[in-house]
């Protein structure tokens, strides 16, 4: 048979994207750094894939149920409603003051906690794909973030219903939550890279992460209000990274003033998180395939 390359007939028409690989074992840190950046850039170019996979995850999670992803909304709504009645009695706060606060806090915290927990399985869940095609790891990071953002989107209905019931609406200052959300996006991506790779190597991290988030839930003003701590307690709250990060989004929507130390804390903790994540990802990127 004759196998010299020649023009193709019509059956196979789609051409694979060109690529150039240059891999070596003795890479310097600068080269590894470039490879990690190329991973991010390549992943970002595949955003439509990440988006499709994120939606797919949500669809498959709720397949066969009539309400679909709105089960999320209902379970969050029931939880917020019952917790709101219980704690407004326990804390002796007016339900009208408390329930909007709780609805917002609980929905935002639910997003953060799920994102941190699912960051752990970012790469191990994609084992089949990672082992059969070269693909930027960042695609799977974006997928985890997008999946959780979609879940958050469904839960926003709970916030809107509660705000409507008590007719408390955020003012224009709620726009200031947008920079906070951008910080969340950046931090979320950093976390998926760090925890995704770390949990691929060490399989007992996810339970540890979940228990840390459980403790953080109680130590952070999610179901209790920061001013219940008293003046000296509020100052110390800035040291709690979860508080700083939660408050930069929650504060503007509730119309409360955000202390300068809160933003400072949020930025410092985010920079530290990115530094650690990047340092780890640069070293681990080429190894993750062997770990999963």
């Amino acid at each position: 048979m004759e196998y010299a390359p020649r023009d193709m007939s019509s059956a196979v028409t789609t051409i694979a994207p060109a690529m150039e690989l240059n891999l070596r074992a003795d890479m310097t840190l600068a080269v590894r750094n470039r490879a990690a950046m190329a991973d991010l850039a390549g992943g970002a170019r595949l955003w439509r894939l990440a988006w499709a996979l994120g939606w797919l995850d949500i669809r498959l999670r709720y397949r066969g149920s009539m309400l679909g992803p709105f089960w999320l909304t209902i379970s969050t709504g029931v939880m917020v409603g019952s917790l709101g009645l219980l704690y407004s009695t326990l804390f002796k706060i007016n339900v009208r003051d408390y329930l909007p606060f709780l609805a917002l806090s609980q929905v935002l915290w639910g997003f953060l906690a799920a994102l941190v927990s699912e960051a752990c399985t970012t790469f191990t869940d994609a084992e089949g794909v990672i082992r059969s095609v070269r693909m930027p790891f960042f695609v799977f990071s974006m997928r985890t973030l997008i999946r959780n953002a979609i879940a958050l989107g469904h839960n926003i209905a709970v916030i809107i219903v509660v705000f409507a019931v008590f007719s408390v609406w955020p003012g224009w200052e709620a726009v200031m939550a947008i920079p906070g959300l951008l910080v969340w996006v950046l931090d979320g991506l950093a976390l998926t890279l760090l925890l995704g790779a770390f949990c691929a190597r060490f399989r007992d991290i996810q339970p540890i992460v979940n228990s840390v988030m459980q403790i953080a839930f109680f130590m952070t003003p999610v179901i209790w209000k920061p001013d219940q701590l008293g003046a000296s307690g509020i100052e110390k709250l800035a040291l709690n990274p979860f508080f700083d990060l939660l408050e930069i989004v929650r504060g503007p929507i509730l119309g409360s003033n955000i202390a300068g130390t809160t933003w400072l804390g949020a930025i410092v903790y985010s920079v530290v998180l990115w530094a650690i994540s990047w340092a780890f990802f640069v070293r681990a990127r080429g190894r993750v395939t062997f770990w999963i």
Partner: peptide, 30 residues
């Protein structure tokens, strides 16, 4: 295919590439 990065040595690949390794790659039954 660039899936396993070499632990020792060096690899250069130039050109578009398709690796037929997994018959059900990314296929979702649902």
């Amino acid at each position: 295919a660039g899936i396993y990065e070499p632990v020792l040595g060096r690899l250069r690949v130039r050109g578009s590439l398709n690796a037929l390794l997994d018959p059900n790659l990314g296929m979702n039954m649902e």
